[in-house]
Every structure is written in structure tokens, then in C-alpha cells.
Design a protein around this nucleic acid. Structure first.
Lengths: 178, 178
DNA sequence: GCGCATAGTGAGTAATCACTTACAAAGGTA
DNA sequence: TACCTTTGTAAGTGATTACTCACTATGCGC
């Protein structure tokens, strides 16, 4: 049998990211994980603690997702890979759930947690500088605002054409460079 | 004494937009509105019905907000006014709450309600056509994705510099035109 | 084997949830 | 005045909530 703590985390990630933190009950999580409800509180102290465990885990998944961008030297590829982040969110089930939870939690708790994006801001700023943009940092923030818009639409608008949109944005950045 | 139905709606708008639908209880709304809890169910049938009343009202507020854009003939001003929407959201308390509720509800229910933006898509498409853009409709959608990003950041990131960002975006569209 | 920590359970807890019901007050019309 | 509809309330309803507690099962060093 797999570690029961792990099963709780998986069930909670699925349910929180699907229905949100507030309307997911601990009894529901226990049922989904095939575990007694008390075990949740043994391992995570309370419901909030369970969420925090998931958030911490998610942060590491996100760091791993950013790493190939941070080590990229070609500035144009830094930008391309940043835009392609949203495609990865769609294609990797694990990342899909983590980011959905991330954004849902943001809106439930009204905290953006900007520090998580800081390394990406840095990498993008550098990239735009190399490409000769005057307001490189502004450009970096602007691109991430667009990513936020894409993510929002991707999760919430069923018929949103993510491929077309990301391609469109990448084209924009292409001709402003060459 | 003001209409008690109206007081319920105001209290609910405030609490739903602040804490979200799921974690706002009907008893809390009644207390805030200085009204017996039963009255909520007399007027709105159930909690969901109360939310729907607010949504319907909000939709009209939003239409009124869009109107000056739809009647604008100068294409460049259509774009400028669309970007400035986000500034209006910040500055008009009423709109501030309505849109916050709108986005919170979107993320709780996972439904984008794209139809509400349809008239704006149309106006923007026309504007980009007049300005000689080839993929005018794509451009329209792209601008609205950016608006979604701005709104997300404005509500969730406390230290987000909305003025700088909107100004930056407007500049982009200025030089791509002249 | 023994002792002990950790993992796990199931039946509880009080509080709160959305919602109902029985009834009273208020307002308009005849 | 008498009648009826609408508005409003207070006290409930059973179900569900997050969480606790007393207890058992399991593994591990000795």
C-alpha cells in the first residue's frame, strides 16, 4: 500500500484545485483518499496545514518548471520559453493541477505571492536588455501580465484557443526583435 | 428606512466580493444587513438566487461601463478606453466590487461567461481593422487577454503599479499605429 | 521476546450551515 | 371597518462542518 500521507496529499490537491479550498470538506478528502478523517489532522494539524503542505510542494514543482528558462542564454529563447509555460501547464497533468490550485488560492485568499515569479522577472529583464529594449524591467513585467491573462483564460474559458494565442504573442515578440 | 431587499443585496455584494461565495454564510449577510435571516430566502429563494441577482445587476453595470467604448468612432480611442477600463475599476467603488465579485465567481465556478465581452470584442475588432491590422480579431482578443492579466494583478498583487502598466501598454499601441 | 514511537481508526464533539415554518406587522383596496 | 397580499421575524430543522479523543495496529531497535 502506498504511503497514506501521500494519498491524502493527492486527494486534497485534486479536490482543492477542482472545487476550491472553502467548499472541499475534510471528510470528502478522507473518503477520496480511502483514509480515516482523523489521519488528516494527525499529519497536517488542520485543514490550513494541509493546504500549506500542498503550496510548498507546488512551489518546488514550479521552480523546476522555471529552471530551463533561467539557464537559457539566448534572450529570444527566454521569451519564447516563458510564453510556452502556459502550454506546459496544459500538457503536464501534475503542473496543471498545481497551477490551478495556485490561482484558485490566490483568488480565495487575495494574495499574489509575487516572490515566486521573481527569478523569472530577473531572467526576462536580462533577456530584454540583451535585445536592446530600453525599459527592460517594464517589458519583463508586461510579459508576465500577459501570461497571467493567458492562464486565466485557459482555466476559465472552455473554448479558449490557447495555441493560437500563444503563437500570436510569440510572433509579436519575433518581429519586434528581427 | 431603506428597502430591506436593497440592504441585503448591498451586504451580499460586499461580503461575496470580499470573502467569496462559499465562505460567506447567509447568517453573516443577514447580520451585516440588519435583517432577519429568513428574509433572504423570502426575497431570493436561496443563496444561489441571491448571487444570481447580484450577477444580473452587475452585468448591467458592466454594460453601462462599456457603452462609451462602443459608441467611440476613433479607433485609437477605442483601444485607449479599453485599456483604461482597469483604471475605472479601481476608481469607481461600485464597479470595483462588481468586477471583484465577477472574477471571484469565475474562479469558484470555473465559468468565464465570454458573452459579456462580446460587444467589446466586436468594437475592438472594428477598431483594429480601421487601423489596418491584418488579424484584427486576434488583436482584439489579445488586448482583452492583457486586460484580464491587468485585472488579476490589480486585485491580487498589493503593490502592483497599475498606472505604470496601463501607460506602458498604451504606449505600445501608440507607436504601432503612428 | 519487550518497550516505545509513529501510524491509523472510528466514534464522538460543539458549532455552524442553508433553509423552513408558523406567525405577526404593515399596507393597500373596497 | 374588513379582507387580502406582501413584508418581516424568531425559533426552529436536520445535515454537515472542522476537529478531538480514546483506543488499536504496526514497525523497529534492543
Amino acid at each position: 500500500m502506498i504511503d497514506k500521507k501521500e494519498k491524502i496529499l493527492q486527494a486534497a490537491l485534486q479536490l482543492f484545485s477542482e472545487d476550491g479550498f472553502a467548499k472541499t470538506s475534510t471528510s470528502r478528502i478522507a473518503k477520496e483518499a480511502h483514509v480515516s478523517e482523523g489521519l488528516i489532522f494527525r499529519h497536517f494539524k488542520n485543514k490550513e496545514g494541509l493546504l500549506q503542505s500542498l503550496t510548498k510542494r507546488g512551489e518546488e514543482k514550479t521552480k523546476a518548471l522555471f529552471r530551463p528558462i533561467l539557464f537559457e542564454t539566448d534572450p529570444q529563447k527566454v521569451i519564447k520559453k516563458t510564453i510556452d509555460l502556459v502550454i506546459k501547464i496544459r500538457e503536464v497533468e501534475e503542473i496543471f493541477q498545481v497551477w490551478k490550485l495556485e490561482y484558485k488560492t490566490k483568488w480565495e485568499a487575495e494574495e499574489y505571492g509575487a516572490h515566486k515569479m521573481e527569478p523569472l522577472v530577473f531572467a526576462l529583464t536580462e533577456a530584454f536588455q540583451k535585445m536592446g529594449f530600453k525599459e527592460a524591467k517594464q517589458e519583463a513585467h508586461y510579459l508576465l501580465v500577459q501570461v497571467d491573462g493567458l492562464v486565466t483564460r485557459f482555466y476559465l474559458q472552455k473554448d479558449f484557443d490557447l495555441d493560437a494565442s500563444t503563437h500570436f504573442i510569440k510572433e509579436k515578440y519575433k518581429w519586434s526583435y528581427t
